[in-house]
Design a protein around this nucleic acid. Structure first.
Lengths: 208, 208
DNA sequence: CGCTGTGAAATCCTTCACAGCC
DNA sequence: GGCTGTGAAGGATTTCACAGCG
């Protein structure tokens, strides 16, 4: 139930602001100009992004680091921990399991699923891999709120449907397929091949 | 030297169109409406995206699949193979090394670098890991055009500078740090924690 | 005086709607 | 008749510029 319409990119930038603020002492006071230097976004952009969520600073002074950081954290929902299910324990999946960056920011992978019988029951990074058919059951049991799909393209649709059926409402998908989320489900796609293709587009262009 | 200004998102969508076309027989003729069904983008959007690059179809008929696919592939620069250096062979790096999706789309990781002495000289996925100090030398030797940075945040700036010094002009960065590319260098950031935070933003909002 | 917060302008991107060709 | 390619309209996002407060 969003109170105000927030541009999609604003949210990504909030993450960047938050990380920049994490490097600074709590009691410092910082201006939008200084955040600009730290993040590369313009000062006007930063101030505008913040207006979607209320008032944050003191005119003539700036923003108190601790307060701004805390409030952005609250907006992003990272002042709490989230429980995440990882589906697909191939190369990418196991890398994500081991990736400390998620844990640091409050995303705890508490369950892992695969359909490969040779993997099920094995322990990776302290987590026992379960059969994907147990997703719904396990998700409820463990109170899981988010899912990461790191399965092959062919399996993505089915994994997605299982996750939705399991009551998971926020899903990060690495498979290069189009999934159509039902109402109320947040789906974010990370398409690595497409990112590489943006690079090759650039190279191909600058050559001609 | 872009001939026309192309919106950033248009390029990502071209990747999607190309992949959709890859599933269809060469000789089929397809309308923008049908591509829309396949990709989820509107027909008008698809036609508009194509106008940035010239004429592609036949009014009253549609697009010849093979021709459209080939021409989009050429625009994206994926009608040729690219040689890629991977920097940072941690969890994510080794997953990317093993990831077949890149190879399939013409991105060949031909060299891998790390600064961990225990990894250097070892072979992963058929590639011998080299000392990062050899990046410039090796990049020239192997005619490498792209780089992927999968290093920790602290090491990202240095790895980036080394890659640029090695003449690499297109870089995909997974480290959550701001890098400022010099003129003529294409930098794309993939920020996984920020993507997760977009999800938690959504969950936190829909709760209140 | 310095800096935030924000109307208003400018820019960028998407959608509409249809002329023109097959 | 059907569908592309594209001006023009519409919408969204970013930037400008400054009122107003500390």
């Amino acid at each position: 139930m969003p109170f105000r319409k927030v541009p999609a990119l604003t949210v990504s930038r909030l993450s960047v602001y938050h990380r920049a603020l994490s490097t600074l002492p709590d009691e410092w006071i910082i201006s939008s100009e200084e955040i600009s230097d730290l993040t590369g976004y313009t000062a006007a952009q930063i101030r505008r992004d913040l207006t979607y969520f209320g008032q944050f600073g003191t005119p003539g002074r700036g923003y108190i680091v601790a307060e701004l950081r805390q409030r952005i954290g609250h907006i992003l929902g990272i002042d709490q921990d989230w429980k995440v299910a990882l589906v697909g324990i191939g190369h990418l999946g196991s890398a994500l399991l081991a990736y400390q960056g998620f844990c640091e920011r409050g995303f705890n992978i508490v369950a892992a699923f695969d359909n490969d019988i040779t993997k099920i029951g094995k322990k990776w990074e302290g987590i026992v891999i379960e059969d994907i058919s147990r997703l719904a059951e396990s998700a409820v049991e463990k109170d899981i709120q988010m899912g990461i799909l790191a399965v092959p393209a062919k399996a993505a649709r089915e994994a997605f449907d299982l996750a939705v059926a399991a009551g998971i409402k926020a899903i990060l998908n690495f498979a290069p397929v189009r999934l159509t989320p039902p109402e109320g489900i947040q789906l974010i796609n990370v398409d690595l091949a497409a990112e590489m293709e943006r690079l090759s587009f650039f190279l191909a262009r600058s050559r001609s």
